[in-house]
Simulated scan of single mutants.
Amino acid sequence: MITNETNDAIAADEPDLIQEARLWRNNGWTARIVKNEDDEGWAVEMILDGESEPALVGPWTMGRDKKNPKPLDASAFNTLVKTAGEFRQRQVQQLHATLHQSVTINAAAGRISVTLDIVPDDDDPHALLAAHDAAGEELARVRVASGFKLNKTSACAWIDAGFRRPE
């Protein structure tokens, strides 16, 4: 038999646990069913704790009465958490790929890896262009504009110019 003390202990272990028909919160995620502004249906928002914007918004199934949304349940919530987590992971990977680029050049001095790390600072956006030899030793590092385009041509030109800061 579960006593009030047991319920209190469970609640203390999971203070953010909410399991309502249109709102579930658990394991750092909140699922909220909202009226779909684009049509007469419903949508579900998945929000990661600490974030102001939903990580994922998608359509939600109508209930049997064809007016109200189908209530959330454990299975649906777990599926939504998995989907939103995967979607967020792809966003992070895409952002990383955008901010951190690299090319490898076969130069006269050997293989040189040229990297561009963009710093998306609101006040001072810039990027760091760096070159490393095959052993990983840094050959050069210069600050460039955040809009610098790294490709094999620009990397070769930088190497051929003796690693002088590109204009």
Rank of each mutant, 00 (worst) to 15 (best):
G41H: 02
Q94A: 15
I118E: 01
L128H: 10
R22D: 14
N7A: 15
Q89K: 14
A31G: 06
A157T: 14
V119L: 02
R143K: 08
A134T: 08
G110H: 07
R22G: 13
D39I: 02
D122R: 10
P69D: 07
A130D: 01
A76Q: 10
Q94E: 13
E20H: 05
T61D: 10
V44D: 00
D123W: 10
G162M: 04
D8P: 11
I2D: 14
P125L: 06
R64E: 15
E40C: 01
L116R: 00
D124A: 12
A108F: 10
S102E: 14
F77N: 03
L80R: 04
E14Q: 12
G50T: 03
E53S: 06
G162R: 04
A130M: 02
A135V: 06
R88I: 08
R164Y: 04
A109S: 13
T153Q: 09
L56H: 04
K149N: 09
E40M: 05
W24M: 14
A145E: 14
E45P: 00
A21R: 07
T6Q: 15
V44M: 01
M62Y: 09
E5S: 15
F87C: 12
G162P: 01
A130Y: 00
A109K: 13
G28N: 08
D49T: 09
D16F: 15
M46H: 03
Q19F: 14
A74M: 08
D121E: 09
I18F: 12
R25F: 07
S113A: 12
A127F: 00
D123P: 04
E45F: 05
G28R: 11
F77E: 03
A109G: 13
